[in-house]
């Protein structure tokens, strides 16, 4: 085949269900031979934050934000029926029952398939997230221009 088709996804949401949709499409796109980039911004950054350790942000407000909004693939909540954790727990259990990968597994899988995981530099700055806030699968911290340039050549571009 000629040059690979591109697909770009903005992951704005940090909800478990929306992240799941994003990763299903990203891994399928990669399986179809597309070059996929996922651009995590705002609450979406929670999806790719490391699960363990503390977030080393500076300043009281940013520290508070990152305590209340800790993030990490294992802490994501459903956008509906979270019900203090019960709904999310049930959904995770139902996913496991039908052999659906968890977000954690999806991240590893996507990375192994060559999906690029990018963190938005501006929101990292605003929210006080240094590079070591993220999991090792994250490729780089980039700005809007990089993402738009990728999207300019992409046949499929989604905002989730």
């Amino acid at each position: 085949m000629a040059e690979k088709e591109k697909m770009t996804i903005v992951v704005f949401s940090g909800d478990l269900d929306k992240a799941l949709a994003a990763f299903i499409l990203a891994t399928t796109g990669a399986s179809m031979g597309m070059e996929v980039s996922m651009f995590f911004t705002f609450w979406g950054l929670n999806v790719i934050k490391k699960n363990k350790g503390s977030i080393e942000s500076k300043g009281l407000m940013r520290k508070m934000l990152n305590v209340m909004n800790r993030g990490g693939s294992k802490r994501l909540k459903l956008s509906k029926f979270h019900m203090l954790g019960l709904g999310t727990w049930m959904m995770k259990r139902m996913m496991k029952e039908v052999n659906m990968p968890s977000i954690d597994e999806f991240i590893t899988m996507a990375h192994e398939m060559g999906v690029k995981l990018l963190a938005c530099s501006t929101t990292c700055g605003v929210m006080g997230l240094p590079e070591n806030s993220f999991r090792p699968e994250v490729d780089s911290i980039v700005g809007a221009a990089y993402f738009l340039n990728e999207s300019r050549e992409a046949k499929i571009s989604l905002f989730i």
Binding site: T27, T28, S31, M32, V98, N99
Partner: peptide, 15 residues
């Protein structure tokens, strides 16, 4: 068997 989208396609591509 027992796998849902996207796993059959992902596994096919890997295979």
């Amino acid at each position: 068997m027992g796998l849902y989208c996207p796993m059959p396609i992902v596994k096919t591509a890997q295979k």
